[in-house]
Design a binder for these strands. Structure first.
Length: 555
RNA sequence: CGCGGGGUAGAGCAGCCUGGUAGCUCGCGAGGCUCAUAACCUCGAGGUCCUUGGUUCAAAUCCAAGCCCCGCAACCA
């Protein structure tokens, strides 16, 4: 029975370039998942977009002496192009500054407001007179009241670890200009999360197959008691609050950005010419929504967004939120500001997208932080993707091409033949199950084992020898070998779509690899089909000065 | 006592939930093969499973305490 699956990917912030941490953390797992389900014949929609509001955008804009719109336009485009070049099969890459998103977000706010889940309250907020704006907590710095550290931030002190409020700081100053902020009365709107504890807990307990770290974190948040959260800000760069007298204020970016999953689906429907097609993905309770995010976003996707959905009613809740841990470089976090780690665009200029995808998938930080290294990248590419996987396809097809020119007819199967096919079948089952459970590293390992099985089979059969001694057996052995290769590249295509496409064409099939083919991957081959031009699938990466230099520059 | 994750061969990791002779990939050593991108296949060397204590016939696995590393703490995937 065919399933319907909505794949949601965390919205990258449009004030700096994407780096490999974003890819390994969210984009690649989401894309593997989406591509796999298409291969299984399921209906899939994948949405995301640029998060374009909030103070960091305006700060970047001021530093660059540009308008916020210019900044987000630049990065939105760069992100969209980079993701496309990486082969991310997204159906709609939307943006929060789009008028249609703003309208959807405002409607969402009003729905919750009308249901009395949003309430106006007086509040005090730090305001910088010289910058003439309200400051987010993190933008207020001062002396920690607990340990006396000089550079504590309004949300916490890094030295003693205590959680702070901006008003706790002694000698507070604006991080942007250094002047002392004043505290001003303002009126903000609060999402009444405290009313939602029970439904959220019920929601959490009804989910199956979630990662334990996600469940634990969410459960502990709820257990500590949920606080009502301010979801509006005194900011001009954002979605205006849709209430009279509040149009000078904006919706808090995180309240507004998560609505993007919903608005992007509607945008996709409009562009596809069926404006109501979004309903299938949000209103049909059989549809499964998966949210691929980094661990820092867990509460937003397991508490705040579900609370919003529960409050509005009639929309699907997340089926799973397979949050990833972090990708580190030499034990340090990727950092936009400190220039640590590799940017996506720079990698794409240097390497094939599948080479990047294979390596990142093989070290994906699913259960703990993972370490990125150029040495590991070269090794995984040359020793695994090229030598074991690419080389298997290459040696089998090259020999077949030279010997027969076409896919040979299979004769009666020997026990070795059947054993090899059975191994491939096991691989398909185990790898498929692992991907469905969002265990992408495990699935890749299964697929790698299949390539090893293929190489063992080819070595044992020695079809180059058989071609001279026993042509009938040679035909059968190569037929089986090609069947395994075809299965291999189909199973691998969620990970390395370009390479699989190339191998598919070498086998003489017409592009592209069709949807729904996963379960037929091992089926009979069209005998006497003419092979395409056979060439190398994977480029060798030399451990040369260049890689060394990049290493030095990036580490 | 803020919360979470982790510590297993030279490197990177799986196994732990559901105790039963320590496994995988890379690297290293020896052999085989010669279809294939110096690729492939076979065999081998290499480990006090962070420490200590407990439960048990039996602990990498369960329990307790401790040490160390990392992340989060509501505006970094």
């Amino acid at each position: 029975m065919s399933r319907t699956i909505l794949v949601c990917v965390a919205w990258p912030y449009a004030n700096s370039s994407l780096h490999l941490g974003h890819i390994a953390g969210t984009w690649l797992p989401a894309d593997i998942f989406a591509r796999y389900h298409r291969l299984k014949g399921n209906r899939v929609l994948m949405v995301s977009g640029s998060d374009e509001h909030g103070t960091p955008i305006t700060v970047t804009a001021e530093q660059e002496k540009k308008s916020p719109q210019e900044i987000v336009d630049f990065f939105h485009r760069q992100h969209a192009e980079g993701l496309k070049a990486l082969g991310i099969s997204i159906d709609c890459y939307f943006r929060t500054s789009h008028p249609d998103h703003k309208r959807v977000a405002q409607d969402f706010f009003k729905e919750l407001y009308d249901r009395k889940l949003i309430e106006e309250r007086p509040s005090e907020a730090p305001y910088c007179p010289s910058c003439r704006r309200f400051l987010p907590d993190r933008y207020v710095e001062g002396v920690c009241p607990n340990c006396g550290a000089l550079d504590a931030r309004g949300d916490q002190c890094d030295r003693c670890g205590n959680t702070l409020d901006p008003s706790d700081l002694k000698n507070p100053r604006c991080r942007l200009c250094g002047q002392a902020p004043v505290f001003r009365e303002t009126r903000l709107h609060y999402l009444l999360l405290s009313k939602m504890e029970k439904p959220l807990l019920d929601f959490l307990e009804s989910r199956r197959g979630w990662r334990s770290s996600v469940v634990n974190l969410t459960r502990s948040w709820i257990k500590e008691g949920l606080h009502d959260r301010a979801i509006t800000r005194d900011l001009s760069w954002g979605v205006p609050v849709p209430l009279e007298g509040f149009s000078e204020k904006s919706l808090y970016v995180w309240f507004e950005a998560v609505i993007g999953y919903f608005s992007a689906t509607q945008q996709w429907a409009r562009l596809s010419g069926q404006a109501s097609a979004w309903k299938e993905f949000w209103e049909d309770p059989k549809t499964e929504a998966y949210y691929f995010i980094g661990k820092d976003n867990i509460p937003f996707h397991t508490i705040i967004w579900p609370a919003m959905l529960l409050g509005r009613g009639g929309l699907n809740l997340p089926a799973n939120v397979p949050a990833n841990e972090y990708l580190l470089v030499s034990g340090e976090k990727f950092s936009k500001s400190r220039g640590i780690g590799a940017k996506l665009n720079e990698c794409l200029a240097e390497f094939d997208s599948d080479q990047i995808r294979y390596y990142l998938a093989s070290i994906m930080p699913e259960t703990s932080d993972a370490d990125f290294s150029w040495d590991g990248f070269v090794s995984r590419n040359n020793d695994e993707l090229l030598s074991v996987i690419g080389n298997l396809v290459n040696r089998v097809l090259a020999l077949t091409q030279r010997t027969f020119g076409v896919i040979p007819q299979s004769g009666e199967l020997s026990s070795d033949d059947r054993a090899a096919l059975a191994a491939a079948e096991r691989c398909a089952r185990d790898a498929g199950l692992a991907i469905e459970q969002c265990e992408f590293k495990k699935a890749l390992k299964e697929i790698y084992v299949l390539a090893q099985t293929g190489n063992q089979y080819v070595n044992a059969q020695a079809p180059w020898k058989l071609a001279k001694e026993n042509p009938d057996r040679a035909r059968t052995a190569l037929h089986i070998a090609i069947r395994i290769c075809r299965a291999l590249i189909i199973y691998l295509s969620p990970y390395t779509p370009m390479m699989s496409q190339k191998a598919w064409a070498m086998m003489g099939f017409e592009a592209p690899v069709p949807n729904g083919v996963w379960d037929q991957a091992l089926g009979p081959l069209p005998a006497n089909q003419k092979l395409g031009a056979v060439g190398h699938l994977v480029k060798r990466i030399e451990r040369d000065a260049k890689t060394g230099k990049e290493q030095a520059a990036n580490l």
